[in-house]
Amino acid sequence: MSEKKIHFAVGCFILASCLALVLLVMQVAGFSFSRDQGSYTLLAKFDNIGGLKVRSPVKLGGVVVGRVEAITLDPDSYTPLVTLKMEQKYGYYPETSSLSILTAGLLGEQFIGLRPGFIDEDIELLADGDTIYDTKSALVLEDLIGQFLFSMQDKGKE
């Protein structure tokens, strides 16, 4: 085989592998280069985060408006402290907004649902680094079952 043919074959090989890499990154990993349009961080305190993980989505009406960036424990109050990275392109939310940890489906992944609050004259918008206090914890199935059994017991006594 002549050297030119070999060069051509190797060139095609390298092109094909680069194409494979690009396809893997774009199509399989869903990576887009225009993603980082600026973001700001919000903090949120929960009583219990359940199965929330880093990179879990923050959704507003089903639209992903941010992601969980870090989960730590507040050493003073012994409550979980969640850092959220919110996308700037969706704007800012009033300080009356509330967060709750929801589950996609019965056994699905957990995510944070954002419910925007009302806007009034003396209500400010949440800025970078602000903390949201109005939060609802994750539903823990064992607690629910415990409460249910407890209420059943009460009914039995009556």
């Binding site: 990154v25 199509q27 399989v28 869903g30 990179r55 989505p57």
Partner: peptide
């Protein structure tokens, strides 16, 4: 199929 895949595959961690 594709969007669930894209949500869970990470460029650094996996590729």
């Amino acid at each position: 199929f594709w969007s669930v895949m894209q949500a869970s595959v990470d460029v650094k961690l996996d590729i």
